[in-house]
Design a protein around this nucleic acid. Structure first.
Lengths: 132, 132
DNA sequence: CGGTATCCCGGCCGATACTG
DNA sequence: CAGTATCGGCCGGGATACCG
């Protein structure tokens, strides 16, 4: 009971409701859960990383998309960018306190999904063979 | 200490690692966190819903995308589809136990983001005015 | 009601080249 | 190293029409 009630009821009355089309929270949620946003936050949860470290950690991301993703997260106040005017340049990215809180909840989801993949794969086989 | 360790360390050795480009968990995570997947799971967390109820609940989703989204989630074993061969037809969608576990973690993230929007909006203003 | 089929546009995103 | 600029494909996803 305590786990099911109050999670979405009356949400229409709250200032920010992600189920409403025009709510800005939907945009931020998409930055966080988007293709690369979630992986960037997850990688940074362990500690600050430089641009190319992050790029190697998030397998498959292009320079352009990583740059865009980091800018969006920085603008939303989830990531802090620390540039040192040295040569060669060095830029470190790290989570803000708010970013850590978001990343923690995101990682709980990610790890749960990873841990459920056997069940998911089994469900897919059942679904596909039932269709055939 | 206990909250920061063991979250991603050694993940490369686990069977499923979302950070790896080819891992199937990345696909499932995208179904769950995608534009409509997350909202569908969130809406179904309260209880089973019919197709058009769901459509009204998830403001802005088209018939096509809702249909696609539900198929993907059903195939992954997160949503159960119950069709009654009546006239007019009635189809109920509800979360599976696995789907509930996923939705719970997802809603924790969603509600946290909703609750943080004031901070996010403030961060954006700071960012934008610093750029200008 | 609960979908599927088709068309088609915008923009997401990868590839490449270039800069400080 | 840490990006930006530009081009182009492809596909997400909206609109519309149609079906059981």
């Amino acid at each position: 009971m305590t786990t099911t009630e109050g999670l979405t009821e009356g949400l229409e009355d709250l200032p920010f409701n992600v189920f409403a089309k025009a709510c800005p929270s939907r945009g931020t949620l998409e930055h966080v859960t988007g293709r690369w946003g979630g992986l960037a936050l997850g990688a940074l949860y362990e500690g600050s990383l430089r641009f190319n470290e992050l790029r190697r950690r998030v397998d498959g991301v292009s320079e352009k998309m990583l740059s865009q993703t980091l800018h969006a997260l920085e603008r939303d106040g989830l990531v802090h960018r620390e540039a040192q005017p040295t040569n060669p340049p060095r830029v470190d990215y790290e989570l803000t306190p708010l970013g850590r809180d978001v990343a923690e909840r995101l990682l709980a989801l990610i790890h749960f999904v990873e841990g459920s993949m056997e069940q998911v794969l089994a469900a897919r086989e059942r679904y596909d063979s039932a269709k055939a």
